[in-house]
Amino acid sequence: MKAKAVEKLVLGMISTITVLVVALLITILAVLFVKGYPALHSGFLFEESRDFGRAGGVLYQSAGTLILMITAVLLSLPVALGSVLYQTEYLSSGKLKTFLMQLTYILNATPTILFGLVGYLFFGVYLDAGVSWVTGSLILAVMILPTLQVSIREAVEGLPEKYREAGMVLGLTRSAQIYRIILPQCFYGIVTGIFLGLARVAGETAAIMFTATTFSGIQLPQSYSDPVPTLQTHILILAQEAVNPESLAQAWGAGLVLIGLVFMLTLVAWAFRTRMVMESEL
């Protein structure tokens, strides 16, 4: 009898905690929406910011964030794809494989500000790219390498053995196997990785705040050495003037745009992942 009462109590406790956690996190989303929505006047996405960001929209900030996202993923994808395929298809030493996996995990856990510091010194100072969108993209490309690698590896390693066997029966060379069988079959996994990478870049602030961004003066970069305005740093600067109601309202608006972007990318990634799981179950 007593045991049952204890069990009920514990159950009640953990169910309450679960409900509370979900409620808390949904509240956070709701607050973001409620705070950000008023700022989203019709042209918020399509207007320049004016008056130190207190008025206008976030057109060029969004553009800057998109530029960094896309370049970073374009730079990172070939390296991620190549290194994973090398590790899964060509490398035979098990020790080396474990070492490379460890490296991926460590890179994945490395605080993002360190990518900013070291990346600025290497790309910005030694390679002389300065504070620019190129420096930022390169830094972010290294930062999302593990994200892409993990997704791609999952897809490649999850490939049913029969595909490979079929390839071998047909007498395909390993390279032919890769671009006839592995790449097409892992397409959805790779796309999932791309979108998760995009989402991670979109949310990153610390690695780019002193390496790639500017607050005003630039709309779109005209050369490789131009910095760009981004949503993330825009929010940071506006948020530090929290007593000015207009600034804060604009910050919430930009926050809502940013989170909308991140969520959209995550949802697309999920859609592709479900597709991948379905394909592999066929």
């Binding site: 130190f52 500017t214 607050f215 005003s216 003066g217 630039i218 005209q222 131009d226 910095p227 600067i237």
Partner: peptide
């Protein structure tokens, strides 16, 4: 910063120079 930002906006309106102002 406010002074220079403001002046930069005016300066850019009448010239093709681009001026980046950061804190």
């Amino acid at each position: 910063l406010p002074v220079v930002s403001h002046a930069a906006q005016q300066f850019m309106a009448s010239s093709n120079t681009r001026i980046l102002v950061n804190a």
